[in-house]
Amino acid sequence: MKWMKRQQLAGYLFVLPSIIGVTVFFLIPLLFSFGLAFTNWLGPTGRDLRFVGLTNFRRLLFDGIFWKAVRNNVFYLLHVPLSVGVGFLVASGLNRRVFFRNGLRASFFLPYLISAVAIGFSWMLLFHPTQGPINQLLVSLGVRNPPLWLASTKYAMPTVIIIATWQSMGFNMIIFLAVLQEVPRHLKEAAQIDGAKSWQVVRYVTLPYISPITFFLLVIGTMNAFKSFGMIQAVTGGGPVNSTLILPLYVYRTAFRYYEMGYASTIAIMLFVIIFLFTMLQWYGQRRWVYYD
């Protein structure tokens, strides 16, 4: 009995520092922002903080920029399956007999660790609309009017998606590489003996076997896509004409450019709700394609 009590106490002592920090820096601010979402607070200079009920939420319904940011954010999600897909292909390549495996693996993974601002600037020059090497290459290949990339409302988001895929792929690749090594040999060999072609082995043996990991990567990737900030803020700041404005940027802009801190909290709450809905959606969708043994 006494031992049990000591055990309890030890448990609390171990988690206590972390719990205090998480409460102060995550939980309280989170609850606080739920409250702020119902106020008209305009930042430290605007004195009178009033509760305005659902006014902010009503405003949100008719805020064209908010809905544009939602649409943009969903479009931006496209980089998640791309990055998971490319990550899988690269991992499959590295999982075969290949020279320089470690060096290759390192070069595929490195971008994942690099500062989004630094690398964003490098991509900005590469994609420079008139003089950038990418467009000069396209022109020399005979493309008459190459896309203006980050400078065009039409191509800015696809460009951002390319950069995001490039940066997030390494993580997916590393995880796939580890799981691929665990696919049991006898399963693949059994399929081959039954006359399966190599793509059929991938389709009917490998993919189902690794599907729980694919699912995990898609869920994490989606969550991160709704939290992205640095790279887009650095390369376009949400422009041109809001074409790359995603929700995290809109929250920041509303709070710290327009100082509408109450309304910014409302948008942030909606962002949280959207992340939650997408996660649930994926959770329920998984039974259609994820296999657990």
């Binding site: 922002s33 702020l36 900030f229 995290p248 929250v251 920041y252 910014a264 962002l271 949280f272 992340i275």
Partner: peptide
């Protein structure tokens, strides 16, 4: 929780 929700509070 997206970090941006914590900016203002």
């Amino acid at each position: 929780v997206p970090p941006q929700i914590l900016f203002v509070p």
